[in-house]
């Protein structure tokens, strides 16, 4: 069975610098894949390439048997890929409620939306997600005044409102408390029943807890792919990544 997301020989150069170099990976539907690697390994750049924010120099990205290489961001999002950014990107001048409402993007056509005043199913979904994200009391507050942890939750909530088939989470637990991290792990494991996740994370404890599969990147290339046990036993990974972290 082919993976939900397949990346084939992806390369990206900025001027002479190769940021992503012949990188390939595959994510099976219904699994949670963690993308790890030292700083500058190209994790966020890979996310940018998948979601269309930047265009690859060469290579191919296939999502649900459809070539999405270098398509526009909104086309890729409509295909079913939702993304949480490394630096939480929420709509700061709008209320938490409006943020979640906008993210519920069932209808994206501007002409239809001119005549839409009530969105069916929105309220139920919004209540559900707001409860999950613990933002029920904050719905009428401006997103700009939320704490860092709350902002993280809001953005996770926004991605969930989109109901994507593939969720890309870039450092979702940065700035969260121990309890919140546990909650995030629980939610992510639940999500696996209906969706596929790719999580970029530095916290190996968290990765160990949630990952079905781990992909290690180094210098823009694939270093290793496998279960967490295989990865932790891999001497090359220990050299470039885990060893470095222990030393730190």
């Amino acid at each position: 069975m082919p993976g939900l997301l397949e990346i084939h020989n992806l390369s990206k150069s900025f001027d002479a610098t190769k940021v992503i170099n012949d990188f390939s990976m595959e994510v099976t539907e219904g699994t949670l894949c963690c993308l790890v690697g030292p700083n500058g390994a190209g994790k966020t750049t890979t996310m940018d390439l998948i979601t269309g924010r930047i265009k690859p120099t060469s290579g191919k990205i296939v999502f649900a048997n459809e070539d999405i290489t270098a398509k526009h961001e909104h086309i890729i999002a409509r295909a079913g890929i939702g993304r949480k950014f490394q630096v939480p990107a929420v709509l700061r001048d709008m209320t938490v409620r409006q943020n979640l409402e906008v993210a519920y993007s069932r209808q994206t056509n501007p002409f239809w939306n001119l005549f839409k005043f009530r969105v069916t199913g929105l309220k139920q979904k919004l209540d559900e997600i707001a409860t999950l994200a613990g933002l029920t009391d904050r719905l009428n507050d401006r997103a700009g005044i939320l704490s860092h942890g709350e902002t993280q939750w809001l953005e996770i909530g926004m991605v969930l409102m989109q109901e994507p088939r593939l969720l890309l989470m870039d450092e979702p637990i940065a700035g969260m408390t121990e309890g919140e991290i546990e909650k995030t792990a629980r939610i992510f494991k639940d999500l696996r029943k209906t969706a596929t996740l790719v999580v970029v994370e530095h916290d190996m404890g968290f990765v160990r807890e949630i990952a079905d599969e781990v992909v290690v990147m180094h210098m823009g290339s694939l270093l290793a792919q496998g279960t967490i046990q295989q990865i932790e036993a891999n001497p090359r990974v220990r050299d470039v990544y885990l060893g470095e972290q222990e030393a730190a």
Binding site: R53, H72, E73, H74, A89, L91, M94
Partner: peptide, 21 residues
Amino acid sequence: SSFGLVTQAIRDDSERVRFLG
């Protein structure tokens, strides 16, 4: 309308709104 909500979101952060589809 929903259109108005999206345009306000675009005013706020047009880059982010693209990734919502």
